[in-house]
Amino acid sequence: MSRAGFILDLDRCVGCGACVLACRMEKGWSDETPWRRIVPFNLDRVPGGPTWHFSVACHHCEDPACLRACPSGAYERRADGIVVLDGERCLGCRYCEMACPFGAPVFDERSGIMMKCDFCHERVDNGHSPACIAACPVGALIRLTDEDLEATSPASIPGFIDPAGCRPSLRFREPGGNLREKRLEQLRKVLEQ
């Protein structure tokens, strides 16, 4: 079985928000505890740079900072790579929140414990896609494949860094068209300046 993770095709994602709502529908989180969100880049369309929508949740890292930081052993990385949080064991100390460089774990004031994207592991175990992937109307958010995992790293997007060395299971796919190359070139130039 291939490792759990997301591929985001930045040329396809139009920032529509269906993934966020599907996640909310599936998991019932509130405004204060989003498991998935869209981080826009250059919505003002400053010339020279591309406009992108980063739909992000937990990256289900190979070496998760949350798991390393957790004093109560509440985190587990399953054999398929899904990083799950056991609410029963969570103390609500929020160390994971501080450790995760991507802001994936969120503190739920009501229950006093952390929450996080669990890759819809119940759905996955029943042969379905995570809710966000199933709902994406443009095919921008898809499940990680071994080829993509091997071929690229998230750092192929300039500006995406992995400061804690977690090795996220997130990839940005190279589409068949020529658009992404054009945009990456634009972005490299902007960053060089």
């Binding site: 529509c16 269906a18 709502l21 709902a135 109307p137």
Partner: peptide, 24 residues
């Protein structure tokens, strides 16, 4: 409790949009 797109409509190809999901 949940809404999904109908895969039998080839034009929308199993998709709905965020508004369709928000009916819940």
């Amino acid at each position: 409790v949940s809404i999904e797109g109908d895969p039998l409509n080839p034009a929308t190809d199993g998709g709905v949009c965020l508004k369709g999901l928000s009916y819940v």
